[in-house]
Design a protein around this nucleic acid. Structure first.
Lengths: 117, 117
DNA sequence: TTCGATGTTCGTGAAACATCGAACAAGCTA
DNA sequence: TAGCTTGTTCGATGTTTCACGAACATCGAA
């Protein structure tokens, strides 16, 4: 649970991003994060074991799509919109639109009502 | 060498396209075809064995990125720009721009001077 | 029909990937 | 300190991918 590695914006590669987005679960995760809000790990819902979810989040992080922050024993994930837009203008938008259209990764979501009332 | 299968425009999937574009050689092939011209198989140059090149072209075709046409014993490939634009507006453009910027698949090209003089 | 050119398919390995459960590490809390 | 929570890492397993050379199929030309 040590601080994970994040590539710099300039080191994000096209093929890396494409590979990361070639899995429906990861696309679903990106969709969940698309609103720009930071999400807690435990808030994320996906139909896989937690070790597998951890793996997918790692792939997204390594590809430079997300950033992970530690806080005590739990961690939070956020989409690197700005970095992605700078490196690959329009790409994220196009992917998100297509993902919405196809409803890719619909099985992924967030635990409803993170904040009470 | 029978007629290969091509998915219809509506059957092209986002993850399929992403997976197809997660390999530098295939991105290079798409770049070569990006001008919209139809290319002969033998015109294409890539640093792999011909069976491997055949494999990559098959992946692109199966993903719906290209269309292959037979003519006698040789075949021609063309990028399905219109279908892609209809299904995933802006995606191809964004990918091509990013690929140019990074020079992904620079090892792929065409045999120079297909037409004499 | 025989030959040559052009791609595809097959058989095979090596590497990468997705997935799981179990074990582990690190930080709160009692 | 002991225990709980939260993720990560490990090891195993099965699938997929990439790569090659060899064999094959198909067509045009001699």
């Amino acid at each position: 649970m040590r601080q994970a590695h994040h590539p710099e914006a300039g080191q994000i590669t096209l093929t890396g991003v494409m590979a990361a987005l070639s899995d429906p679960i990861r696309v679903g995760l990106v969709r969940v994060l698309a609103d720009g809000r930071e999400r807690g790990w435990g808030e994320l819902r996906a139909p896989v074991a937690k070790s597998t979810l951890s793996h997918h989040l790692r792939v997204l992080r390594d590809a430079g799509l997300t950033r992970t922050r530690q806080e005590g024993t739990r961690c939070f994930v956020i989409l690197r919109r700005t970095d992605l837009q700078a490196r690959f203008p329009g790409l994220l938008q196009a992917v998100l639109a297509a993902a919405e259209d196809e409803d890719v990764g619909h099985q992924v979501g967030v635990k409803d009502a993170g904040w009470p009332a």
